[in-house]
Amino acid sequence: MKNFLIPTTLKEDTIGAVKLAIYQAKETDCEIILMMLSEIPDTYSTSNFLRTMRVSLTNTQEEVLEICRHIVGNTGNCKIKIHNQYGISSPIFKRIINTFSVKLIILPHSYKQETKRIHDHLVQLAGNQRCPILHLGTEPSKDDFNKALYIENAQQNIHVKDVQQFISENFSFEIVSQTKNFDDNIEEFAPHLNEVISKNHIDLLVQTRKAEKIKFKKTKNETINDLFGLPVLSLYEELV
Rank of each mutant, 00 (worst) to 15 (best):
I151S: 03
S47E: 10
I97A: 06
S101V: 10
S110N: 05
G16K: 05
C78P: 04
K213Q: 12
I88H: 03
S56R: 13
V18N: 04
N185D: 13
I105P: 00
G76V: 02
T138V: 10
V72C: 06
L37K: 01
N185V: 11
Q207W: 00
M1S: 13
K217S: 11
T43S: 07
P7Q: 05
M36T: 12
S141C: 10
K2Q: 15
L20H: 08
D226L: 01
L125I: 13
K161D: 09
E27K: 15
N77D: 08
K161W: 03
N170E: 04
L205C: 02
I133P: 01
K26D: 10
Y23F: 09
P140H: 05
V18C: 08
Y150G: 01
T219H: 00
G16V: 00
N194H: 10
M36N: 13
V72H: 05
I96A: 08
I118R: 03
T43R: 08
T28Q: 12
I118Y: 14
Q164L: 04
K11C: 05
T9M: 14
T8A: 13
K210V: 10
Q124E: 14
F182L: 06
T43L: 11
T9C: 13
E222Y: 10
L10V: 04
H70M: 09
C78I: 02
I40F: 08
V176P: 01
K81N: 12
A190Y: 00
P91L: 12
N200K: 07
S168Q: 13
E66F: 11
K81F: 11
Q155D: 15
E238R: 09
I22D: 03
V72D: 02
K147I: 01
I118W: 03
I33M: 05
A154H: 11
I224P: 00
T75G: 04
I167T: 02
I82P: 00
N128F: 06
V163L: 07
L50Q: 12
I40W: 07
V64A: 07
A17M: 06
R69Y: 10
V176K: 06
E212T: 15
K81C: 14
N128K: 07
S168Y: 10
I106H: 03
Y150W: 08
D143W: 02
K218S: 12
I32D: 01
F145A: 01
I15V: 14
F189K: 14
H192D: 11
I71Y: 06
L233K: 02
Y111I: 07
S168N: 14
E63S: 13
T99V: 08
N128V: 05
R69A: 06
Q61L: 06
